[in-house]
Simulated assay, not measured.
Amino acid sequence: MSDLRVPDRRPAFSTLGASGEPLDQVVHLARAAGLTGVELRCAPDEPIHPGLTAEQVESVARTLDAGWLSVLALSGYVRLCAPDDDFQLIELTRQLTLAAAVGAAGVRVFMGDEDGTGEPRARRRLAAAAPQAARLGVRILIETHDSHAESRRLAGFIGTLDADTVRAVGVIWDTAHTWRHGESPARSLDLLAPYLAHLQVKDVASDSDATPVPLGSGRYPVRELGAALDAVRWRGWVCLEWERKWQPGLPPIREALERFPGWAAAVLGVAATGPEPRP
């Protein structure tokens, strides 16, 4: 790690590692680890999804507020490039409304351009949803994933959007995905910096094997990532994406959260790991 100290890179975690856990348990996990930020997986098998009643949404908002948790994003599964139908846009608008109601900063989406022809559809959907996102004060956050896992491709796509749409769009940088596609952390950061909302970090088996592994046992160059962030004095949330939902052989998230500060020290700098004082 360089001598630069950045006190406000703040650690967070994704509930992908605690799928199905009630929100009070999520709050307990966060408090035990001294974290104040969370990505909430948004799906029918989770405590938060667009099918909740108004009373349930209010209860979610109260629980998050009482737990002092900042919600980086509702991690939904809209695919902007999916073949034309009404579902993707309708689901996105529902998730944006839900995000605003519970105080989330944005809604995570994927590109999902399976046949390479979907970017025009994605542009239309983003242009249609952008006014609502702007009105609600939330952003549509595209993850470096699937067809657009490379920063070069995702940044190139965002560069084709009109100015009003771009203001409603951000990027969640899954740092392992871009690295596995041959990009150095510094190169990815350079491409994504104008749009970057927050980082996701995890350790993976190798640059040719995306299998998540216990922190410190894989090959992801976390020190190189830390140096790249130091070089541009980047500040913001660093979110542990513990993929136990899809990799049940991984240790419980409690164990991962214990190891997270040490493994990610080069990325987190001197970020405080204790709860922030309540205003």
Rank of each mutant, 00 (worst) to 15 (best):
A43T: 06
S19P: 00
D24M: 07
P44R: 05
V60C: 15
D8M: 08
L4M: 12
G51H: 05
S14C: 12
I48H: 04
V6P: 00
L16T: 08
V57S: 10
P44Y: 04
R10D: 01
A32P: 00
A12S: 09
A12V: 04
D24H: 11
E46S: 08
R31K: 12
H49T: 11
R10L: 15
S14I: 03
A18N: 02
R31P: 03
L4E: 10
I48R: 04
P11T: 01
G51P: 11
L4S: 09
R5E: 10
H49R: 07
L35D: 00
G17R: 02
D65E: 14
R10V: 14
E46R: 11
H49Q: 12
V27W: 01
A54N: 11
A32S: 13
P47E: 05
E21K: 06
A33D: 07
R10H: 10
D8E: 11
R9N: 03
D65F: 11
V38K: 04
R10S: 11
R5T: 14
T36K: 01
I48E: 05
T15Y: 00
S14N: 07
D65W: 04
P7K: 03
R41N: 08
T63R: 13
G37Y: 03
Q56E: 15
V27S: 04
G17M: 05
P50M: 15
L52W: 03
G37H: 10
C42G: 07
P11Q: 01
L35V: 07
